[in-house]
Simulated assay, not measured.
Amino acid sequence: MVKRLLKIQDNSIVKRITIWRQIKDGLFIAIGVVMASIGLKGFLLPNGFFDGGAMGMSLLLDMLTPVNLSVLIILVNLPFILLGAKQVSVPFAIKSTLAIFALALLVHYIEVPAITADKLLIAVFGGFFLGSGIGFAIRGGAVIDGTEVLAISVSRKSSLTVGDFITVFNVCLFIIAAIFVDIETAMYSMLTYFSASKTVDFIINGVEEYLGVMIMSSYNEEIKQMISFDLGRGVTVLKSDGGYGDKAKELPDRKVLFCVITRLEVTKMLVEIEKIDSKAFVIQYPIKDTKGGMIKKRPLH
């Protein structure tokens, strides 16, 4: 099917890409499971801290019930895995199941000595290692914390966004912790959650955040040459219709330049555009990811 649709003559290309993708996914998931287990065993568990999301729920239940944490990790995430099979895909659910079982086994069997007794360091670095684990697992196409799967499902059936649901979920979780454990632990655990969430964003999105830039100018040809030859970036010319004002009447068929650059390059581009046309209208907006073209690959892709 793929060969016929894409008109690929050599099927070995498809197999090579697929195998290499599976190897990278497996490596990312393995790294994620190890990092998360270090965060749990080396920082959070010895000091009674927890995180947000499904992992935070597992840790909180471990404090309040006699059930082993390894069992709780599986039980809490099981409904999210089943939901992921319906909402995302069956391969996603299978990889997530393997990742969660691997994490549960590591948490149960490995011994990691408590690295520090400083509560601030525990919260920050525990969140860092746990967030790294969650982020690498997501890069591998799986989850070891299924809250986002539930959030996606809820957002499709209500007015809540994914971010809104996760925020509400974690606020409720920390309130319960403050009531049944203590306020100080809940506050430090909130810090753990913030550290973990920022680490997840860093692992998934990388250092080089991409921006889409749209430029409307009477000197679009000069700006296009500058972007292509001076900055070495690809640029696409879009045809547009002017909608308002005298310029719309004078130039009904206008051109809009579009390119994708990193945040580190945007200042230089704006300066160069200013040199060519100080009245140019420039729009910037964030882009989650890119592939192909003249944008260099991200380090972990």
Rank of each mutant, 00 (worst) to 15 (best):
S155Q: 04
I13E: 10
K275T: 00
K15N: 14
L191F: 01
T18K: 09
K3A: 15
I176P: 06
K198G: 12
F129P: 14
V14M: 15
S217D: 06
A30N: 12
M187W: 00
S278H: 10
I175R: 10
W20A: 15
T267C: 07
S70T: 12
K95N: 14
A99T: 08
D164E: 04
M55V: 09
K247D: 06
A186E: 00
I295V: 07
A137I: 03
T65P: 00
F43Q: 12
D10Q: 10
V90G: 06
G53H: 01
G53I: 01
F229N: 15
V266M: 07
F129K: 13
T116K: 15
F202Y: 11
N170K: 12
V124I: 14
E209Y: 13
T147P: 08
V149M: 02
K7S: 15
L103N: 05
I283C: 15
I23F: 03
D277N: 04
T290V: 13
K95S: 10
L105Y: 02
S89C: 10
N47I: 03
V162L: 07
L121F: 07
F229Q: 11
A151V: 03
L45V: 05
S37F: 00
L44P: 15
L130M: 08
A196V: 11
K247W: 07
D201A: 14
T262A: 09
K239Q: 14
Q9W: 00
V112G: 13
L238M: 08
A102E: 02
I81R: 15
A248W: 00
K86P: 04
I223A: 14
L60G: 09
